[in-house]
Design a protein around this nucleic acid. Structure first.
Length: 547
RNA sequence: GCGCGCGUAGCUCAGUUGGAUAGAGCGUCGGCCUCCGGAGCCGAAGGUCGUGGGUUCGAGUCCCGCCGCGCGCACCA
């Protein structure tokens, strides 16, 4: 049992003796100021009301009843309005290094998910153009959330939903057709709602080259299929460049061809959840929290986007994903209520909170102090590819993940390009490389290094103790980030841990110290390297051994 | 107008689910350079947490009003 668990158990026992009502769930946190000790609890304050005593008095009574001498607790202090601060034996703290090294690539993993399946849907771009920066943020987020869930015991399936049906695809085909007409000598007139990017012209040129005979009077079906295939290929290349892989690609068009959309309509009709008005078929979404009912079948007979969306989420449920997470841009947030309403209206036993949503705000790209708004090929927006080409995939990932998803994000290309510690991704990777460098310079094999038989109790410098405590916190940080679906916590943690590692590195030497010290510090260097590497893995960022 | 999100140091942002004297990086100012990488290091200044109320022993965090910014408000997705 860890000292943390021991303290918690003693707190529960002592509180029970004092007559505290169940459940007693003391929370242990790191004190705001490390000089206060190693662990802190506010339990006495939370018991003030039920026990009708002053917090400081309760803290004293708790302390008197706790048996902590064999739990490595050196002292318990009562401070502030009623905090209890526990100070641990530094040798015990140093022992934390051993577990990091022996767990190695598993350090930080846990099992809250118990192997249950979860579907994470992200990117899901329409195949109408190259991926833009918003998709990039979504790709980084979705992939990191997926990995976080894997680290906490979930069986994750990464899924990409292709909206390859509907109006936008018609607009795409007509846009390509317009360019084809131009190639054949006509005027370029891009249709209303069409796509203007340079890539449309490229697709038309390739199409014309492959169909020289019918370039002028090309068949729309053929153009549409060709354009969608080309753009899917292009998006795949973008994702590949970014290092994101999906388990499943689900095609919206398949929901029509296999009759699922029609089935959903019939079930909704059967459940008396629809009505006709103005030639359209409406769903009573207002019964499920929407501010008004929504059209599901337009008067022209085609469906609005959200009906296939509902059918799609039914398949997730039926495919065994009783947990599903959708990562989307906040500009689509109105879909949340509608899709959930549709699922509730079907009455198939799905939770009201199904699926869960992670919405992210917009990305602004800055360069030389000015906002960058367009790319050459896409015309109206900056592409992920532009960004990756300019600053590299690692920087793109880290920058997209270092902010909360619900804050708007400013992507500063100048900072991302810096080869110095001003650049946060460089700073973290450098800490990793430095730890590796110690082993390289010392001619010691890092991977086979073992802490067995090494006396870690000599790691008692303040910088060492702070670093070790941060390393030991990693599993809690991973668990918290996974539960909250907030990968930015990992990025923040890595920046802080890297800072502690740099501080330690600058203040203390490893190689050339007396053997006892050197071995213990090698263990700390190895443990630091492992934790930073594991954290970067979660974010999908590379871990260079030298820079 | 309605809905969602955001507002924390000059700038970019954290803030452990309500706890102690609100933190980090950059920038500014002042010191350091024979080192396992100076592509750095140490220190200091810098705050009415947009604003006004409320709940609480305790609020940056929860509730209400107001102000500002972003996004959405389709028989588009």
């Amino acid at each position: 049992m860890s000292s943390e668990d021991r303290i918690r158990a003693e707190l529960v026992a002592a509180a029970r003796e004092l007559g505290a009502p169940d459940p007693i769930e003391p929370t242990l946190t790191r004190p705001s100021d490390p000089s206060f000790g190693d662990w802190s609890t506010n339990l006495a304050m939370t018991l003030a009301r039920p026990l009708k005593k002053r917090p400081a008095e309760i803290a004293g009574l708790l302390r008197d009843r706790m048996k902590l001498s064999d739990a490595g607790v050196e002292s318990v202090e009562i401070a502030g309005p009623g905090f209890m601060n526990f100070r641990l034996d530094p040798a015990l703290i140093a022992e934390g290094v051993r577990e990091v090294i022996s767990s190695n690539e598993s350090f930080g993993k846990s099992d809250a998910g118990h192997g249950e399946p979860v579907n994470v849907e992200f990117v899901s771009a329409n195949p109408t153009g190259p991926l833009h920066v918003g998709h990039g943020r979504q790709a980084a987020l979705g992939d990191a959330i997926s990995t976080l869930l894997e680290w906490t015991g979930w069986k994750v399936s990464r899924e990409f939903y292709y909206n390859d049906a509907g109006v936008q695809i018609e607009n795409l085909a007509r846009s390509v057709k317009a360019r084809l007409d131009a190639i054949a000598g006509g005027e370029v007139s891009i249709p209303e709602g069409g796509y203007h990017g340079e890539y449309i012209r490229e697709i038309a040129e390739r199409y014309a080259a492959m169909h020289p005979a019918d370039a002028k009077s090309a068949d729309m079906n053929s153009i549409r299929e060709f354009a969608v295939a080309e753009l899917r290929k292009e998006q795949d290349l973008d994702l590949q460049a970014f290092g994101v892989k999906f388990d499943t690609y689900y095609l919206e068009s398949s929901l029509y061809t296999d009759g699922r959309v029609e089935q959903v309509v019939q079930k909704l009709n059967a459940n008396d959840m629809t009505y006709e008005s103005d030639g359209a078929l409406w769903l009573k979404t207002s019964q499920f929290g929407d501010d008004k009912d929504r059209v599901m079948r337009k008067s022209d007979g085609t469906y609005t986007y959200f009906l296939p969306d509902v059918a799609y989420h039914v398949t997730k449920w039926e495919r065994g994903f009783h947990r599903a997470i959708d990562v989307q841009g906040a500009d689509h947030h109105s879909t949340v209520t509608r899709v959930r309403a549709g699922l509730q209206a079907l009455d198939i036993g799905v939770s009201k909170q199904y699926p869960e949503y992670v919405l992210h705000q917009m990305v602004t790209v800055m360069k030389s102090g000015e906002e960058v708004k367009i790319s050459k090929r896409a015309g109206s927006y900056v592409t992920v590819r532009d960004l990756i080409n300019e600053v590299g995939g690692d920087a793109v990932r880290f920058f997209f993940l270092m902010r909360k998803s619900d804050s708007q994000l400013v992507f500063d290309i100048d900072v991302a390009l810096k080869q110095s510690e001003e650049n946060p991704v460089y700073y973290v990777q450098m800490a990793h490389a430095r730890m590796c460098g110690i082993f390289r310079v010392g001619g010691i094999d890092r991977e086979s290094f073992s802490a067995e038989g090494i006396d870690l109790s000599v790691l008692r410098e303040p910088e060492e103790q702070e670093l070790i405590k941060a390393l030991a916190d990693f599993p809690d940080v991973v668990a918290g980030a996974a539960e909250a679906l907030e990968p930015h916590r990992i990025a923040t943690y890595l920046s802080e841990t890297a800072r502690l590692a740099h501080l330690w590195y600058h203040k203390h030497h490893v190689l050339g110290e007396p053997e006892e010290i050197m071995n213990a510090r090698l263990a700390l260097a190895r443990a630091s390297q492992i934790v930073i590497r594991n954290g970067l893995h979660i974010l999908g960022i590379s871990t260079p051994e030298r820079m």
